[in-house]
Design a protein around this nucleic acid. Structure first.
Length: 417
DNA sequence: TCGTCGCTGGCGAAGTGTGC
DNA sequence: GCACACTTCGCCAGCGACGA
């Protein structure tokens, strides 16, 4: 087998928004409900304002978090559209179908990213660079949106390559190109180096990826523990995880949290918020056919102090009421009456539900599990708000809070590389 | 900025080894 | 058999990465 050739394909979502904005400015309004960019990543987009955030800020002075009324007063031509996740997922699947024509080894990394293992496929298709351009142009022509493609010998470098310059570009970042193309980049551009690590490295005068690469790994280990060695390896382009066809990895935990628009200062209301979070988390558990052995809750006060508490269960469960009861108990043990602005529920230590071991001493939740399954069925058919507990009526609270089940199909970044 | 999730390190309990 | 030191393991809280 020849040397590894890995592609990273990244959909230019934000730039689609930009393109739409540009057309808007040119007096050629576009019905944004018809383009996949409606699922862009910033909070503005999430609330349905489908223009690139940078353009909004630069051209119109509209900032994240600004009210719709205020945004419209600054930009009367602003088009508001409902985010269309279904369309975005369809586009993502269509992209995967095209990629599969070039290699059976493709891995969906997130809803808008793929890895493709092209190792030895050049014998069949020819020059990898030419094929990358071919894929990029086919996606644009057949699917109507642009992608960036990065090519290298491993997933890390391919991903770094695809982010070198956007949109609609193909870049290579082979190991011999690291000093020229990767080392001059600011330290924060390196995969797995976030805000906190950037601050720590800058305080030690490590400003670029190259400077990180030339830092004594023992020093990095002293500063950042094993994580220091990881990013030192990344700065040298060292990474060897395989492209995993199917993309699905073992989920280790799932949770939901919410920041409230008002202070919660009584136990009953907090329990209701916890229930709305547990409703979503437990539905995701059942959908993924998992049970949990560990329940944790967290909250943040209106003074931004965070607290968390968790408990190991003697018997694994996926039952909404059982998880909620535990979450409430944990909350009561931890809460000292402070006004709360943020509440979260998380389950981990997941196990497959076909190996459920019943305890002789545990309360029988079998009936409640049947109710859960019936409710899941109704919500699947008619929507999440089709059925709710009476306690939410006139409460001003949502009966279900948190993420969508479909997200479980895609692993998060850190669990992959 | 928010929501979600994985990882790390501190800490205490439990287990094991050694000397008396 | 007992006391103590050391090691291992699991629990827990918190941090930080990352996509939206």
């Amino acid at each position: 087998m020849g040397k590894p050739i890995i592609f990273h394909i990244d959909v230019n979502s934000a730039y689609l928004s930009w393109e739409a904005t540009y057309r808007l400015q040119q007096g050629d309004p576009l019905d944004l409900r018809t383009v996949p960019s409606v699922v862009g990543g910033d909070p503005l987009t999430r609330h349905g304002i489908v223009l690139a955030k940078s353009i909004l800020a630069k051209e119109y002075g509209i900032k994240t978090g600004e009210t719709l009324y205020s945004a419209l007063s600054k930009c009367p031509d602003l088009i508001i559209a409902k985010p269309n996740y279904l369309l975005f997922r369809q586009c993502s699947k269509a992209l995967g179908d095209i990629l599969r024509e070039y290699s059976p080894l493709i891995q969906q990394f997130s809803v808008d990213e793929y890895f493709l293992d092209f190792t030895s496929m050049d014998l069949l298709f020819g020059d990898p660079l030419a094929i990358a351009y071919q894929i990029k142009d086919r996606v644009k022509k057949e699917l109507g949106f642009t992608v960036n493609i990065g090519i290298s010998t491993n997933k890390l470098l391919a991903k770094m390559a695809s982010e070198l310059q956007k949109p609609d570009k193909v870049h290579t970042l082979f190991p011999e190109e690291i000093p020229e193309k990767m080392w001059p980049l600011p330290i924060g551009e390196l995969f797995m180096v976030g805000r906190a690590t950037t601050r720590k490295l800058l305080s030690r005068n490590i400003k670029t990826i190259g400077e990180l690469a030339h830092t004594d790994p023992r020093l990095l280990k002293a500063i950042l523990k094993s994580y220091g060695l990881l990013i030192w390896n990344y700065a040298h382009g060292i990474e060897n995880s395989p492209v995993r066809p199917g993309g699905r990895v073992e989920v280790k935990g799932m949770g939901n949290s919410t920041t409230l628009s008002f202070d919660v200062d009584n136990r009953k209301e907090a329990h209701l918020v916890l229930l709305s979070l547990v409703e979503t988390v437990s539905a995701r558990l059942r959908h993924s056919q998992y049970f949990t052995r560990l329940v944790s809750i967290s909250f943040r006060t209106n003074e931004f102090l965070s607290y968390s508490h968790q408990r190991k269960l003697s018997q694994a469960t996926d039952c909404t009421n059982e998880i909620w009861e535990i979450a409430c108990r944990l909350f009561d043990e931890l809460w000292k009456g402070q006004p709360l602005r943020h509440l979260g529920v998380r389950v981990s230590e997941l196990c497959q539900n076909d190996f459920l071991q019943l305890s002789l001493f545990a309360k029988d939740y079998e009936k409640e599990r049947k109710v859960d399954q019936a409710i899941d069925g109704i919500r699947e058919r008619f929507g999440s708000q089709a059925i709710m507990r009476s306690s939410y009526l006139h409460s001003g609270l949502k009966s279900m809070t948190g993420g969508v089940i479909a997200e479980e199909e895609y692993p998060t970044m850190t669990s992959l590389l």
